[in-house]
């Protein structure tokens, strides 16, 4: 019998397993690559500050409680806004849809929460939403965001995947130094809407606290 033979020939046995487990992946995943890589018409990649904020989101692993995927149900579009579209995520590496909603979805939180609200909320969630079980992220008000890494990320995705960042995005230190003022300018616009004096001073000094970058990112979720 074929299977008895197979069980005595480990090489063919292993080959058999490999074939059986490979083709589902090939059939299901590969055809989607062309289609799902198309961005929405006016989709822009995130700015360096927003990318730095996304990396704060990854570092503090907000994905463990928050999704970014609004499903096409009336109850979700009423709560969070329009259902999510594939073309909106094209520049997201990695995707951050999440798999657990201990807290609400955040895919369009930029539409209905604002800088000052986030400032208060990240400092002490239960003070804003009584009963909240979200931890306070006070350390984000003192830790500095890594904007240089965010810039390196922008350059990398531009070169490797043609993500449309401008011609000034180059992988050299000089190009980064030239771009940095733009990031600080954007950070200042966020800090202007905040109340915390230390944050304002830090930004004026040319530093970017994590919370400033994070809020830039959250505001960009629309």
């Amino acid at each position: 019998m074929f299977f008895h033979w197979l069980e005595k020939n480990p090489f063919f046995f292993a080959a058999g397993i490999s074939i059986v487990i490979s083709f589902a992946g090939l059939l299901e995943i590969v055809p989607n690559f062309a289609e799902a890589a198309r961005p929405l018409v006016d989709l822009k990649p995130r700015t360096v500050l927003q990318l730095a904020g996304k990396n704060v989101y990854k570092k503090d692993n907000c994905i463990s409680c928050h999704s970014q995927m609004i499903r096409p149900f009336k109850s979700e579009t009423d709560r969070y806004g329009a259902y999510s579209l594939s073309g909106e995520y094209v520049y997201d590496r990695p995707f951050l849809w999440g798999s657990k909603r201990t807290g609400p979805d955040l895919h369009r939180v930029g539409n209905y929460r604002t800088t000052d609200w986030h400032e208060n909320h990240m400092w002490d969630p239960p003070a804003i939403v009584p009963g909240s079980i979200m931890p306070a992220y006070k350390h984000q008000f003192t830790n500095l965001a890594d904007i240089e890494t965010a810039y390196a990320e922008a350059v990398t995705v531009k070169n490797a995947f043609n993500t449309p960042y401008g011609p000034e995005f180059k992988g050299t230190r000089a190009a980064w130094e030239a771009h940095k003022p733009k990031v600080l300018e954007e950070a200042k616009r966020i800090a202007d809407d905040m109340k915390n004096k230390d944050i304002k001073e830090a930004v004026a000094r040319g530093e970017v606290p994590e919370v400033v970058a994070l809020i830039a990112y959250l505001n960009s979720l629309k």
Binding site: Y91, F95, Y151, G171
Partner: peptide, 15 residues
Amino acid sequence: LGNIFHSVSMYSGTN
């Protein structure tokens, strides 16, 4: 530039 540990996924979004 930046942090040596940091990387970007080869795939994006829905993929």
